[in-house]
Design a protein around this nucleic acid. Structure first.
Length: 245
DNA sequence: AATTTCTACAACCGCATGTCA
DNA sequence: CTGACATGCGGTTGTAGAAAT
């Protein structure tokens, strides 16, 4: 299996793995453009990097995800959306690819089936109006976007009539706003409108809770809107107690 | 036993971002 | 400031093995 210019593609052989392992052990991680040459591999740098990061790296934990890990993934996904590398960063030994694959093949499927269940049940009980916050992304030239703290945008909850936060003019969050937002989050506070859906969903297990809240990257906390966007992993507040999220 | 369908996961691809000359 | 290059990320595809028919 050889691609353009004779670069090998497809599954890695034991021999290739050994060459790559030895190369990284000798020269260290990084400088991936030099790895194929140094290791004597007929692979592209991307392929080498991916193989190391997702498979060969000694710190990688293999095997089934534990219940705790799954729970954490669900919570982090609720908070961050499809930011797999950030999520994986909170799960020692797990790679972004692992988490993404697990999400797509396990959790996402359950979510979809649960969603249908909840839909059916909701019809019998009462119509639930779920407010769906939307993720916000701001242009790089918005001055306060360089602030390394989580981005919060004040939202007038009364303007949620059309289910869309009015955020046409993003304003920089004050420190107090940010603190309040996180406190709300940690205290499990939800704005009215979401509460009913959560109560109904709670009766159907944690997965249903997730379902009722809808999987959107944006999460509203109190009267704050958290857009789930961080510039890098270092922007993610590590001291957040996700277990209370 | 043979074939088809499903599942899990490895790998690829394209794009965004960062770095440096 | 800008362009070239390296790196990293997320979405998607490919494929081997398991399960179902």
């Amino acid at each position: 299996m050889e691609g353009f210019l004779g670069v090998r593609k497809g599954s890695w052989t034991e021999e290739e793995d050994n060459l790559l392992r030895k190369c990284v052990q000798k020269f260290g991680e990084g400088r991936w453009h030099q790895v194929p040459l140094r290791a004597g591999l007929n692979r592209c740098r991307k392929s080498c990097r991916l193989r190391w990061l997702n498979y060969l790296k000694p710190s990688i934990k293999r095997g089934q995800f534990t219940a705790d890990e799954v729970d954490l993934i669900i919570r982090l996904h609720k908070l961050l959306g499809n930011r797999w590398s950030l999520i994986a960063g909170r799960l020692p030994g797990r790679t972004a690819n692992d988490v993404k694959n697990y999400w797509n093949s396990h959790i996402n499927r359950k979510v979809v089936s649960c969603k249908e269940e909840v839909k059916g049940k909701a019809k019998q009980i009462t119509k639930i109006h779920v407010i769906r916050p939307r993720p916000l992304t701001f242009k790089k030239n918005v001055s306060w976007s360089i602030n390394p703290s989580p981005k919060m945008v004040n939202i007038d909850v009364h303007q949620f009539g059309d289910n869309r936060p009015n955020h046409s003019v993003p304003s920089p969050p004050s420190l107090e706003d940010e603190i309040l937002g996180w406190e709300d989050l940690l205290n499990g506070k939800e704005v009215e409108g979401n509460i009913s859906s959560i109560i109904v969903a709670e009766e159907q297990g944690p997965m249903a809770t997730i379902m009722a809240e809808e999987y959107t990257p944006g999460t509203k906390m109190g009267n704050h809107f958290f857009d789930g966007t961080y510039a890098s992993s270092s922007d993610f507040p590590l001291d957040v107690d996700l277990w209370n999220f």
